[in-house]
Simulated assay, not measured.
Amino acid sequence: MTAAAPRTPRTHAEASRESRDLVSGEVRPRETMIRFVAGPDGWVIPDLAGRLPGRGLWVAADRSSVETAARRGLFSRAARAALRADPDLADQVERLLLRRLLEGLGLARRAGELVFGFEKVLAALSGGRAAWLIEALDGAVDGRRKILGAARKASPTPGLTGLWTGEELSLALGGENVIHSAFLAGRGSDRWTWDVQRLSGFRPLVPDSWIEATPPT
């Protein structure tokens, strides 16, 4: 999945949810960008939730843009102040997005918006209720192949992530040996999707081996 292309706002409400990318100069939806602010010590800080005080410094949600902004001093230029950006700022954003997404899964579980377990996930897929299929990185190949086969037949077809191990998913969801899980369609999954799309600019959502092993539909 990729971030949406920049577009011209159609309403005042839409315009209020858009900002200018420091790197390209294009106005983009904020859902496709990362907000940064200047910390009290002069370091640039990622603000994924968009709630930290201070002027927002917006950059397109992809590794190249963040690295360019840090390397070329674009944060300082936009803020009209001397700011320091860590060379691994893009890596920081990736780690924060991964943690934010994992925490979002835990919240969805408690809100009844997420199910896990082979049979429950199959039922969600067959009922067309799954917005996202979240597979553990270290799950058995046979089980994953069966789940992915069901996902290809689902309508609508859910998104797919393979970002965490079974242990990480188990801790986040409060279960044991969580390998297969599904984020059910709804407002919660819509918000989660925005962060997944942003993360896709920094790393693949699934291992290459999964794509290579998945036969075309």
Rank of each mutant, 00 (worst) to 15 (best):
A182C: 09
T193E: 11
A15K: 15
L101T: 06
R72A: 11
P216I: 00
R191G: 10
R198W: 00
V93K: 06
A70T: 09
E176L: 14
A81I: 14
P9D: 07
A108P: 13
A13Y: 09
P216S: 01
T214F: 02
F116Q: 01
V44Y: 09
G56R: 00
E103G: 10
R72W: 06
R95I: 02
S76D: 04
A151T: 01
M33G: 08
R55D: 13
F116M: 00
D138Y: 10
E18M: 15
T193S: 12
A123F: 02
V23Q: 04
A108K: 09
K120Q: 12
P158R: 01
D88E: 15
G159L: 04
D138L: 14
R77G: 01
A140F: 10
A78G: 01
E135T: 05
G50V: 12
L98E: 04
A15C: 08
L171M: 01
T217E: 15
D208Y: 08
I211T: 13
S189H: 04
K146T: 14
G201N: 13
W210I: 11
E18T: 11
T157C: 05
L137Y: 00
A182Q: 03
A4F: 00
L107F: 06
L133A: 06
A130T: 07
S189A: 15
T214E: 02
S200F: 05
T217K: 15
A61H: 02
A78T: 07
L122N: 11
S64T: 13
V115G: 05
G174S: 05
K120I: 04
F202T: 10
P6N: 11
A123K: 10
R71K: 12
G139S: 14
V93G: 08
V66L: 01
F75H: 01
N177H: 14
T193G: 07
G56H: 02
L48W: 03
V206S: 02
L160K: 07
S24K: 14
A49K: 04
V59I: 14
G117P: 13
A136S: 14
P9K: 08
E14R: 14
A131P: 03
L83N: 03
S19I: 05
P9V: 07
R20C: 05
D21A: 10
M1V: 12
G175K: 13
P87W: 07
R51G: 02
D62C: 12
G174D: 05
T32H: 09
S155M: 06
L22A: 07
E14K: 14
L133Y: 04
A3R: 15
T214H: 05
L98W: 01
E67P: 00
G54A: 13
